[in-house]
């Protein structure tokens, strides 16, 4: 069994009337099966309201399934006695860094998680140092978080999760509020954690460029998983993705436009490098005697 496994997962948001009776229910996740292997980098795409964040919140038991079941490292999230272990296994990073930083000094903020877990003092500082070095923020350890840039704050938030030594990190639109540099910093940090520390990553984003290096892309619509595959497989379906209110990387769009104009390019081009390589082939052909 993988580190995250969902089977027939469903979740209803309930609307209560004044007497606390259920007035209406709306299904946010509908019959989702998911199997994530340890060390995978998974990206989840989907429009606003498609159920991505609701699914993410199940992974560390902020929400519990209405139907079906979700296991985190073999533990059923409905088992309250396992709550701490589950949250320690799957850490979460949210969209707005200002809502998740609480310390007045960077290293104190990062130490908050392990301290709450009852980690001995000496080890806390060791973990703080390790995790700040991993996200490239060690030199800012004695700074005040509110003087940092958005990308730096978000990396401190990631360090705070890393200090709890989770096997899996769930990031819910971590770059939505960042400038281009901040976005690059955060994505690079997440990729390094995945590649070097073998942390399982589940990344929710609206930026298509951020998912082209993922092992697997999952597309959600109306609470269901509607597409799944490698980035190349998923982004080959430009029109279908647009139907789900999504987009594809710009290089893929340019390739799609060129195909429509009659250029014989392969499907599933993801990056500028790949497009340049394919165009070079065509260019050489036009220059042949």
């Amino acid at each position: 069994m993988g580190i995250i496994k969902a089977s027939k997962l469903a979740f209803d948001y309930l609307k209560m009337d004044d007497e606390g009776k259920v007035e209406s229910r709306s299904r946010a996740i509908d019959d989702v099966d998911l199997d994530v292997n340890e060390g995978d980098f998974i990206a989840i795409l989907g429009h606003n309201g498609s159920g991505k964040s609701t699914l993410a919140k199940h992974i560390n038991a902020i929400l519990l399934p209405t139907e079906g079941v979700l296991y985190v490292d073999g533990r059923d999230t409905r088992d309250e006695s396992k709550l701490w272990e589950i949250r320690q296994t799957a850490g979460m990073v949210f969209q707005n860094p200002d809502n998740q930083i609480i310390g007045t000094i960077v290293d104190e903020d990062v130490g908050f998680g392990p301290e709450n877990m009852g980690v001995p003092q000496q080890e806390i500082w060791q973990r703080v140092e390790d995790s700040l070095k991993k996200v490239g923020m060690w030199e800012y350890r004695d700074h005040s978080p509110n003087k940092l840039s958005g990308g730096q704050k978000q990396r401190v938030a990631i360090a705070g999760v890393v200090a709890m030594r989770p096997k899996c990190i769930v990031l819910d639109e971590p770059t939505a509020m960042l400038d281009p540099n901040g976005r690059k910093e955060v994505i690079r940090t997440v990729q390094e954690l995945n590649r070097q520390e073998h942390v399982t990553v589940i990344l929710i984003t609206h930026y298509m460029e951020e998912v082209i290096e993922a092992d697997r892309v999952i597309v959600m619509d109306q609470g269901k998983v509607v597409m799944q595959g490698t980035p190349r497989e998923v982004f080959s379906h430009v029109e279908e993705l647009k139907g789900y209110r999504l987009d594809v990387p710009q290089a893929t769009l340019v390739a799609h436009e060129l195909q429509k104009a009659g250029l014989p390019l392969p499907d599933g081009i993801l990056s500028n490098e790949e497009l340049v390589r394919e165009l070079e082939k065509l260019h050489r052909q036009t220059q042949l005697p």
Binding site: N48, A176, H206, R245
Partner: peptide, 10 residues
């Protein structure tokens, strides 16, 4: 930043 956090279609 009127589009921060919105999906591509939005």
């Amino acid at each position: 930043e009127p589009t921060a956090g919105l999906d591509p279609k939005g």
